[in-house]
Design a protein around this nucleic acid. Structure first.
Lengths: 211, 211
DNA sequence: CGCATGCATTGAACTAGGACAAGAAATAAA
DNA sequence: TTTATTTCTTGTCCTAGTTCAATGCATGCG
């Protein structure tokens, strides 16, 4: 036992506590949980470190996880009929990423790719763990329903923008909405997210810079 | 009691039973419920008849319902910065319509309009009833989470199409996906749903017809 | 250190789809 | 049946955004 409490172990324990409190804060945002419920939740998570440029999910696979981003940045995208990548989501710290809508309940293979853009730390949550969580602590069902609802709101908002705004407006709104991201990811990824060509985004940027 | 079982009443009872079984079939699609649970659910619904061209929700109001379409057709739309209507959803028989994602949990006034396009019959479900349902029959939490998940999948799919497909492709896919709707609603509404101008849709249609 | 591969910028030519206007058809209303 | 209102079609002109190339700039990497 003596060896356990060495100078390496103590900071590690402390780090893990911080990580759990990070995800617990996120899941408690709309529903409050007691200590015991959170412990059940935490015991079902798998902590995972993943280097940059790693594929978490490939088209055609089953998406058997929901990932909570503790640290890092990932993109979720699909490839359209003309072979173009279209980015559906960037997920950074404290965001969830998964292809839940298609894969898990529909039991269909995914159409999307999920790739890390930076070295990442995740909590991975499997469908089985989710079921177990819901049966042991049913309150979580509600928390995940609300998360789902928020994703829907975000997606609906994006649809709104995609249909109704010009490329310049979309870009400005992106900058306003995700100032951190515009520093962290390559321009052409942002273009792909906005649904415009990388060249045109570049032209927009020079035009904006001149004002 | 004798008067109750007259020739008018019996068909009415039978009609209401049919209506309940219609919505019960819908809600049981992914989660199964026993008779008692369904009765609780049904007791919390309000049946409502609404003439065509009626606004169920106006921009700026709080959306305090989720409506299950028993019969008829509605459109949900917003008006963009240039004053253009953009249709987000058509809902026909057995679909749910609401502005749940923005209004109810976020407690923000809605940005959308919901209008009947035909004479309609609905089951209206209020947020209060929903809370009551969840506390009396928690299994419903899951059913509504899955409904939400499906809406997300549909919206994501639309985003996909909006970004990646040409107007012609979108229209053809619409015809394939909603053959009934294309007969029931005006062309310019379909154009608005597809995010293209009514004139251009007309041109697409004549081009297609010539093939 | 030099080299390669990816990334951003710029320009010129092109196109999908929009805006506007004016008629034709269809539906509703009276 | 006539009139009014909404919906659909067609044509012309116009623009936001694309495609294709070429060039300069970084950033990793042996």
């Amino acid at each position: 036992m003596v060896g356990v409490f060495n100078k390496h172990f103590l900071p590690l324990v402390s780090k893990i506590k911080t990580l759990y409190s990070q995800i617990n804060k996120n899941i408690s945002r709309y529903v409050s949980f007691d200590q015991q419920e959170l412990e059940i939740f935490n015991s079902l998570l798998e902590f995972k470190t993943v280097p940059k440029k790693t594929m978490l999910l490939q088209e055609g696979e089953m998406c058997n996880f929901e990932a909570f981003v503790v640290k890092g940045c990932v993109r979720k995208y699909y490839i359209d009929d003309n072979g173009f990548e279209v980015i559906l989501q960037f997920a950074i710290e404290n965001a969830w990423v998964s292809d839940i809508s298609f894969s898990i309940y529909e039991n269909k293979p995914s159409r999307v790719f999920i790739e890390t853009l930076e070295d990442c730390e995740f909590f991975m949550f499997s469908p089985e763990s989710k079921e177990e969580l819901f049966s042991n602590a049913p309150q979580f069902e509600r928390a995940f329903r609300i998360l789902m609802q928020r994703s829907l709101a975000v997606t609906q908002d994006r649809l709104f923008n995609t249909i109704s705004k010009t490329a310049t407006e979309k870009y400005l709104e992106f900058l306003e909405h995700y100032p951190a991201l515009s520093q962290r990811v390559a321009q052409h990824y942002i273009a792909s997210y906005l649904g415009i060509s990388a060249e045109f985004l570049s032209k927009i940027r020079t035009k904006i810079a001149k004002l």
